[in-house]
Amino acid sequence: MARRKIVAGNWKMNKTPSEAVALVNELKPLVANEEVDVVFCVPAIDIIPAMQAAEGSNICIGAENMYYEEKGAYTGEIAPAMLVDAGVKYVIIGHSERREYFAETDETVNAKVLKAFEHSLTPIICCGESLTQREQGITIDWIRQQIKIAFLNVTADQAKTAVVAYEPIWAIGTGKTATTQQAQEVCAAIRACIREIYDDATAEAIRIQYGGSVNAKTAPELFAQPDIDGGLVGGASLKAEFGDIVNYNK
């Protein structure tokens, strides 16, 4: 069975609640593609107004982050139950910016992944290498380590529902894009790693996105690759162009 494509927008730290509503309303008719799962991962303060604006459309609202504890003295953090209660289905975990600026590690990513599954949230688990790692030829080793630790103690049934987003750090917001061949090679290696950890069925079920300066021009070729099941889109998800990416097959 062919895997259903998933295109997710990562809004990062952009859009006030009123701007979020305006953007959802603008994009709603542009992202109407019944063959693709469409997710807007928005800042926490935008989740509820964006959810209300997206009602009745094919847009799912996701979160950009969450904490791995149920509740407690963690000022400024968002608990998984808060996301569930707000109607969130997806949550980005371990984005390279979270790792770089907020000291997230492979171990905290794993804790968050386990907690997301506990609450029936679908994690979009990010992995990726720096330019130095790419130039030193350790990309695949590095990604495999990230994947193996992220999926520690995750069951095969849980893993089948997960989304992995491969984003070469050197291609995020730089305008540089990995070649289609580079993107496919790493996504294939991720699937092979999942096969090693679990089995063929799990590897075939899991969806793997490519991210890193995805745009309307590059999307059709990227999404046509056998191991690329969609995209995690940054800057372009804040513009009308996002509709062209979602409708790559039209």
Rank of each mutant, 00 (worst) to 15 (best):
90 Y>A: 11
111 A>W: 07
110 N>E: 05
82 M>S: 15
69 E>D: 08
125 I>G: 00
92 I>K: 06
125 I>H: 00
123 P>K: 13
122 T>K: 12
94 G>N: 11
104 E>Y: 15
86 A>H: 03
94 G>A: 10
106 D>Q: 08
107 E>L: 14
99 R>W: 13
122 T>H: 12
127 C>D: 03
89 K>S: 01
105 T>Y: 05
138 I>E: 04
109 V>I: 15
81 A>C: 10
77 E>S: 06
125 I>M: 01
130 S>D: 12
118 E>S: 11
109 V>P: 02
112 K>V: 09
96 S>K: 07
130 S>W: 08
125 I>A: 01
127 C>T: 15
114 L>E: 04
139 T>L: 04
115 K>G: 01
69 E>N: 07
134 R>N: 14
144 R>Q: 12
135 E>L: 05
102 F>T: 03
86 A>N: 02
136 Q>T: 10
66 M>N: 13
98 R>S: 02
136 Q>F: 00
128 G>K: 01
83 L>V: 03
101 Y>T: 04
119 H>C: 05
146 Q>N: 02
95 H>S: 02
80 P>R: 00
75 T>G: 09
92 I>N: 04
129 E>L: 06
121 L>S: 10
126 C>S: 13
96 S>W: 03
108 T>N: 03
139 T>V: 14
92 I>V: 15
128 G>A: 01
119 H>R: 00
88 V>M: 11
132 T>K: 15
120 S>Q: 11
78 I>R: 00
113 V>K: 09
138 I>G: 02
70 E>F: 01
110 N>W: 09
109 V>M: 13
124 I>Q: 12
90 Y>L: 08
79 A>M: 08
132 T>Q: 15
100 E>N: 04
